[in-house]
């Protein structure tokens, strides 16, 4: 009953409004044209108002006049989209690496035995790889200078005389001098456990050698 009442109210308003607008129209040859358009408008409005009774939606999106100018070909659009996506991926990976390096550095500095000056992280860099962005290695740089409140510094050991398995420093396959003291092993173990990676992927090197 309420819906019928609302429909009748709407129809009364529309009809009264239409009559008044017709009175406004100029009495020329344009009169018929404007009257035609107003008749169409009344049909649309009445259908929309009546649609609420039959629970249908007659409110359409108004069609815009289409321009005939040809747009760029689909392949170009797709190519641009892929280029943009890869650029965004690279940017996201760089920001992720920077954030992770800061985290690692903060974690490493929690211990007071070694003066950790810098941290670098390595991630899997192939975008096609399903494990793209996974943490693949951590390099911690330690300095010889003592830290405030620390108990000791890194021992200066001649790199050529160190063998694997002993405390001190060793040279890896790339020639980087690895710090191999107990404190360095402990630090590497902590970082490896925190990020759930093998301890071999965490390297502690002397600052300026990486």
């Amino acid at each position: 009953m309420e819906s019928i009442k609302a429909l009748v109210q709407v129809l009364v308003i529309i009809i009264v409004m239409t009559v008044f607008i017709e009175m406004l129209l100029p009495s020329s040859i344009m009169h018929d044209y404007v009257k035609l358009v107003m008749g169409l408008l009344v049909i649309v409005v009445v259908l929309e108002a009546g649609a609420t009774l039959v629970k249908q939606d007659f409110k359409f999106a108004l069609p815009a006049l289409q321009q005939n100018s040809p747009g760029p070909p689909l392949a170009t659009i797709i190519g641009e989209g892929q280029r943009l996506a890869s650029k965004n991926k690279e940017q996201a990976l760089t920001e992720y690496q920077q954030g992770l390096a800061k985290q690692v550095l903060a974690l490493a500095r929690l211990q007071k035995d070694l003066n950790v000056t810098n941290a670098q992280v390595k991630t899997t860099g192939n975008p096609e790889d399903p494990e793209y962005g996974r943490l693949a290695g951590v390099v911690l740089e330690v300095s010889d200078s003592p830290i405030e409140g620390g108990s000791q510094t890194v021992e200066k050991v001649s790199p050529v005389e160190i063998t694997v398995g002993t405390n001190g420093s060793v040279k890896d396959s790339t020639g980087t001098i690895l710090v191999n003291s107990d404190q360095a092993k402990k630090l590497a173990q902590t970082v490896a456990n925190f990020y759930n990676i093998p301890v071999e992927q965490v390297q502690v090197v002397r600052a300026g050698q990486e």
Binding site: I13, I21, S28, M38, V45
Partner: peptide, 24 residues
């Protein structure tokens, strides 16, 4: 707006009335 008429339709009608007047 009381009759829930889409304002796009109403604007079109008023523009048409204006065009008719100016042309006349």
């Amino acid at each position: 707006s009381q009759a829930n008429v889409n304002m796009v339709y109403m604007g079109t009608i008023l523009k048409i009335v204006g065009v008719a007047y100016i042309a006349d």
